[in-house]
Design a protein around this nucleic acid. Structure first.
Lengths: 228, 228
DNA sequence: CTGAATTAATAGTAAAACTATTAATTTTGC
DNA sequence: GCAAAATTAATAGTTTTACTATTAATTCAG
């Protein structure tokens, strides 16, 4: 699967960048080093000036690729969710039992990202940490609705809807499939965050994973024919 | 209850402000107008300069009360969660049945805030919107752990633990009471957000409330003696 | 009623977030 | 193969933000 996936380029809304960072070496360095620098400093302290320094270039080189740091964050998030979507689609293919399929999906979407070499210039483990800490900031803005219409959240949106469909396949009578799907995706990031920084508010730890918690949750919430 | 509550001053960590805004007319105007201005502009565009203008004063007057806008946000959040805590404690008092009690608690914590006159200089409806849109930004920072230790999130922390205890009272065998409690509080804000801005990702609407969704959720997840 | 302390307002500063200009390099049409 | 066009790189601005320092006004205590 790793071989197969490494051939595929993750599709990202073209209005998120001015020049495709995948199209040049400088662009790839911008992406990889932005992930490392946001992880190191946090999104608020992250600036294009600092990033320019990291890539041995300058501020305005970064501005040629991304309009501003908000768009760059949306780009990174789209990349991350696109990557997760591939994992979801491949790992749930050819599983006939809807409940097993959903469990597999929830596991893929909520698990901690382990060292991987999917794309050489992206460190997925660090990107996962960046998404946990910063993704909410990308949509908690005054411009969300406009940006949703422009398709800046299309990948995330599609992922929630895919999960929703898998939920419906298990329990067509369940009243809140979209809400449950969005709770799992957003809640997973939140549980990972609590596990790292606010451990009093979660049972998730080195031993218990957010996946355990959410798989248990769906099994209790959803009634399929055999156990409804 | 409204009478009773209006006598009580919500306790807030003293390191969140330089001078207690409750202690002067200017302080109260700072609090009320900061809520309105953050709601209007969003936290990123909100500045003490703009706020100074709104209260017919200037930037440095605001700086005498709050060190920076982050601390002001933490102050507003503490106020909000303290207010919610009172509602929780009063509304669940003298309910003997644990499940009914928990349902009541979840309802209080996840419902939309309606027009209220709890404290004259705080518009609770607008504050609720501010918390939905901005609360995450108060803890998704590089300084969280330090600030948790300083007690800046003590009220929120306590509220999650209160909810956790009510969950345990219903189902002592449930493995993830803290995670479920934190999911409900954080997830409720998220569902309210989706309802307003990203309706494709939730069933919550004018007809279906986040409370309906979360009460249904706990009833499915938790097994008490009679229906476990 | 005086001087010490507190409060208010003004004026600054450093960094952030861009923008405009100019210089260098690459591409391409002939 | 070379000049014009286009693209890319680097420098030097500008405006706004987030504070800080200084000075002026007021209050308060003995």
């Amino acid at each position: 699967m790793k071989q197969l996936l490494s051939q595929i380029k993750i599709e990202i809304n073209k209005n998120l960048f001015l020049k495709d960072p995948e199209s040049s070496d400088l662009g790839k360095r911008i992406v990889q080093n932005s992930i490392l620098l946001i992880d190191k400093t946090g999104f608020e302290q992250f600036t294009f000036k600092k990033l320019g320094k990291e890539i041995n270039s300058n501020e305005s080189s970064v501005y040629r690729y991304f309009e501003n740091k908000h768009k760059l964050l949306l780009y990174l998030a789209s990349w991350y969710w696109g990557w997760k979507e591939y994992q979801l689609v491949f790992s749930t293919a050819n599983i006939p039992d809807p409940r097993v399929k959903l469990e597999k999906a929830v596991h893929v979407l909520t698990r901690q990202v382990e060292k991987d070499t999917f794309v050489s210039h992206v460190d997925e483990v660090v990107l996962n940490r960046v998404v946990v800490n910063e993704f909410s900031k990308s949509y908690l803005t005054k411009e969300v609705e406009k940006e949703i219409k422009e398709g800046f959240f299309a990948v995330y949106n599609r992922l929630v809807l895919r999960l929703k469909e898998l939920i419906i396949d298990v329990d067509p009578d369940y009243l809140y499939p979209s809400s449950l799907a969005s709770t799992i995706l957003e809640g997973s990031l939140h549980q990972h965050f609590l596990k790292e920084h606010f451990s009093a508010l979660t049972e998730c730890s080195a031993e218990v994973s957010p996946s355990d918690y959410f798989i248990h949750m769906i099994n209790r919430i959803l009634k399929s024919d055999k156990n409804g």
